[in-house]
Every structure is written in structure tokens, then in C-alpha cells.
Measured scan of single mutants.
Amino acid sequence: TIDEIIKALEQAVKDNKPIQVGNYTVTSADEAEKLAKKLKKEY
């Protein structure tokens, strides 16, 4: 679900690790936030 994706992003940001979500690779908190907002609009 979208919530699980967002939790995974938040965890990756805390661990400061890049995370791959679908076609996106998120490497920073800023990118994670942008991706989360984008995904919320889509779903």
C-alpha cells in the first residue's frame, strides 16, 4: 500500500540509505518527500 511505501521511505531516510521504489531511486529526505507527495496524488 501507499502507507507502506511511505514508511519504507521514512525508514530509509533515517538510515540514510538510498532506496528503490518502483522506477524511482530515492537518496535523500527531500526526494523521499517529493516522491511521497507524488504517490499520494496518484493513488
Rank of each mutant, 00 (worst) to 15 (best):
T1M: 11
T1H: 10
T1C: 15
T1D: 10
T1L: 10
T1W: 15
I2W: 12
I2D: 02
I2Y: 11
D3V: 12
D3A: 14
D3T: 12
D3H: 10
D3Q: 14
D3N: 09
E4T: 06
E4P: 03
E4N: 07
E4K: 07
I5K: 01
I5A: 02
I5H: 03
I5M: 08
I6L: 12
I6Y: 02
I6M: 07
I6F: 06
K7G: 06
K7V: 07
K7A: 13
K7F: 08
K7R: 13
A8D: 02
A8V: 08
L9R: 00
L9M: 06
E10D: 07
E10G: 03
E10C: 13
Q11D: 07
Q11H: 04
Q11E: 08
Q11P: 01
Q11N: 08
Q11W: 01
Q11K: 09
Q11Y: 02
A12E: 00
A12S: 05
V13Y: 08
V13F: 10
V13W: 11
V13Q: 05
K14I: 13
K14G: 05
K14P: 01
K14N: 06
K14S: 09
K14R: 14
D15Y: 05
D15C: 08
D15N: 09
D15F: 07
D15V: 05
N16M: 07
N16G: 15
N16V: 02
N16I: 02
N16F: 15
K17Y: 15
K17H: 09
K17M: 14
K17V: 12
K17E: 04
P18C: 15
P18Y: 04
P18K: 05
P18N: 03
P18D: 02
P18E: 04
P18A: 11
I19D: 01
I19P: 01
I19L: 07
I19A: 05
I19T: 10
I19N: 01
Q20F: 09
Q20R: 14
Q20L: 09
V21Y: 06
V21M: 05
V21R: 00
V21P: 01
G22T: 01
N23W: 04
N23L: 04
N23C: 15
N23H: 07
Y24L: 15
Y24I: 15
Y24T: 13
Y24Q: 13
Y24W: 12
T25Q: 14
T25Y: 15
T25V: 15
T25A: 09
T25R: 04
V26A: 09
V26I: 10
V26D: 07
T27Q: 11
T27N: 15
T27F: 11
T27W: 09
S28F: 02
S28I: 04
S28R: 00
S28P: 00
S28M: 06
S28N: 13
A29F: 05
A29K: 07
A29L: 07
A29P: 06
A29R: 06
A29W: 07
D30W: 10
D30C: 12
D30F: 11
D30M: 11
D30N: 06
D30T: 08
D30E: 15
E31D: 09
E31V: 04
E31G: 02
E31A: 05
E31K: 00
A32G: 03
A32M: 06
A32W: 05
A32V: 05
A32K: 03
A32I: 07
E33W: 05
E33R: 12
E33G: 06
E33Q: 10
E33D: 12
K34V: 11
K34W: 13
K34Q: 14
K34L: 12
K34Y: 10
K34N: 09
K34E: 14
L35S: 00
L35R: 00
L35W: 03
L35I: 07
L35V: 04
L35T: 00
L35H: 01
L35N: 01
L35D: 01
A36G: 04
A36R: 07
A36T: 07
A36H: 05
A36I: 15
K37M: 09
K37C: 14
K37H: 10
K37G: 07
K38A: 11
K38I: 11
K38F: 11
K38C: 15
K38V: 06
L39F: 02
L39Y: 03
L39C: 07
L39I: 08
L39T: 01
L39K: 00
K40H: 08
K40S: 08
K40W: 10
K40P: 01
K41N: 13
K41S: 14
K41P: 07
K41W: 12
K41E: 15
E42N: 06
E42I: 14
E42M: 14
E42C: 15
Y43I: 14
Y43H: 11
Y43T: 10
